[in-house]
Each structure stands twice: as C-alpha cells, then as structure tokens.
C-alpha cells in the first residue's frame, strides 16, 4: 500500500524523485503533496469497491469446489474441507456441456463474422455511395437497434413455425444476424463517413471498382471499430437467451444460456455442480475478452464509439 497512488505528474515515489527534480519554488511540492492524499483516498476506496465487486466470483468459485455437506454446514466464504473437482465433471455430464457448447460455438462462429460483414456492406452503401434518401435508409436501420427484441418474439415464433425452421440452427441464426445488423451498421456508418473522399477518388483513378474500394480502403481503416464490434457481438451472441429459449425446443439444440437456465431449474439443489457449470459456460467469452482486452480497458475504444 506504500506506493499506492502514482498521480500523473507527481514523482511521489523516492526512486522517481531522485534523478532530475528541477529546483522549483517551495509552493509546488506542497501542492503536489496535497494531491497525493486525494490520490491515496481514491485508491483505497477503489480497492475496497473492486474487492466487493469481485466477491460474487469468489463465492461462485468456492461453491463450485465444495461438497454438498460443506455447502449446507459451513459458511460460504470458508475454504472447502475437501476440494470437489468432480463437481466439474458432474456438471459437464448432467448439463451436456459439450453438446450445447458446440451449438453455441457453431452459431457464434458463423454469425459474428458474417453479420459484421453484411452490416459493413450496408454501412458502406449508406455512407459512401450516398444515394438520395440515404438518411431514410439509415434511420430505418438504426431504429431496429433501439427496440427491445421481446416485442417481436411472438411473430418471430410464428414466422419460424411457418418456415419450418423452429427448433433448428438456421432458425436461430437468421434472426441473430438480423438483430445484430442495426447497431453495427450504425456504428460503422459513422466510421466510413469520416473517411476523406480523396482516398477513394485516388483509388478510383487507379481503376479500383466499388468493391475494391470497400474491401481495400474502407474496411482496413475501420479496423478498430470492427475489432470492438466483433467482441461486443461475440459476447452478445454467446449470451443471448430470450430468442434461443423461444425458438429452440429440443435439448440437443440448446445453446449455453438455455442450458444454464435448464440446469439451474432442474438441479437447483446441487449448488456445487451448478456453479461449476456457470464458470465453465463463461470460459469462451472470457477468452475473447482477454484477447481484445486492450480495446476496452485502455480506452482504445474511443474511436469505435461515435458520440
């Protein structure tokens, strides 16, 4: 806790202070010292609140490795008397983790890149081709991002019923693609819009067609936005529950969130395996998060979010 706050300009730690501290007036160091107290207080309160924030994860993990007896007889925050790693294998079996995980993975791996590509095509058309009434098209698309999906669930069910796609992978994939497009289109539109015309004009002079302008100029320039949208969409697709539970019926077609709900409904008293199942169900999104973490944590997201 000693070197807690490293306030931006203040070389508070002795090591940093030694090299070249310019001989400034007496007033300046005093001001710096005062700012450090604020920094320390801030740091301590942040540390406490982040501990609080992490507690649910701690409880979840501790429960996931405890026996039934431990759970019912000892407080939650105690370490287990015996580490029940078998909870994890139990959960994999009773929750059919591999089956549902495969379903979720297939859907996410197809949906996310394809959906992003289609949204980018549409955003390109609206932002760069600039036909008349492009604003109407933009508004129509964007409106879809603002409406709660549950509004369309009943008719969506009826549509899939009449298309014979209820309880199939395609039947979930198609609406997933549709529901991702508006938001992504809206974000990418802002990005493509900001590309200077000269870039495209010079490409045109070089004989590049529309699609090459899109593929070789606009898409690479939108990379940060695409990366941010990729992770957001992957997380959203992996976690989607409302549509999946409406459109999927047989257990073999379930995706991970439906399985989590099914598991907690059926095995609501086997807390150990339930928590193990929850932890394992989140592994893929955690991996994706860690891969793209810098976009979120270090503010590199800035450009991707258009004000």
């Amino acid at each position: 806790m000693t070197a807690a706050p490293a306030a931006p300009a203040a070389p508070a730690t002795p090591a940093a202070a030694i090299p070249a501290l310019p001989p400034t007036t007496a007033a300046v160091p005093r001001r710096r010292k005062r700012r450090d107290y604020v920094g320390i207080a801030l740091w301590i309160s942040l540390a406490i609140s982040s501990l609080l924030w992490a507690l649910p994860f701690v409880f979840m993990f501790l429960t996931s490795v405890k026996s039934k007896k431990d759970i019912s007889q000892r407080p939650t925050w105690y370490l287990p008397t015996e580490w029940m790693w078998s909870n994890y294998t139990d959960a994999i079996e009773t929750g059919n983790l591999w089956g549902t995980g495969t379903n979720s993975l297939i859907i996410s791996v197809i949906k996310v890149p394809l959906g992003l590509f289609l949204a980018a095509l549409a955003a390109y058309a609206i932002a760069r081709i600039r036909f008349k009434r492009y604003k109407l098209a933009l508004g129509l698309f964007a409106a879809g991002a603002m409406v709660p999906i549950q509004i369309g669930l009943g008719p969506l069910f009826s549509t899939m019923l009449s298309l014979n796609l209820l309880d199939t992978r395609w039947g979930l994939l198609l609406p997933y693609l549709a529901f991702g497009i508006p938001y992504q289109m809206f974000m990418l539109y802002g990005f493509f819009r900001a590309i200077p015309d000269e870039l495209e004009e010079s490409a045109q002079l070089d004989g590049a067609g529309r699609f090459r302008q899109f593929w070789q100029i606009c898409l690479p320039l939108a990379k940060p936005a695409l990366a941010a949208l990729f992770i957001l969409d992957f997380v959203a697709t992996w976690n989607e529950y409302a549509m999946a539970t409406t459109l999927l019926q047989s257990k073999t077609n379930w995706t991970i969130p439906v399985a989590v709900q099914g598991f907690s409904g059926q095995h609501s008293t086997s807390y150990g395996p339930l928590n193990a199942f929850i932890i394992m169900s989140a592994v893929p999104v955690l991996i994706v998060y860690l891969m793209f973490q810098r976009y979120f944590v270090q503010g590199a997201f800035a450009g991707a979010i258009k004000g």
Binding site: L118, A125, I129, F141, G152, P155
Partner: peptide
Amino acid sequence: AQAIPYLLPAAILYGWFLLYPIIDS
C-alpha cells in the same frame, strides 16, 4: 442501383426477421 447489392443482404435479413416481426406484433 450501385448501392443495392451492398444494401440488399442486410436489408432482407433485417426486414424479414426484425422489422416484419415487430410490425406483425
């Protein structure tokens, strides 16, 4: 006409599986 091929795939999906269900609701 130039914009149509870029717009169409997204528009069909969006219209069929999002806009239409909402209106149908």
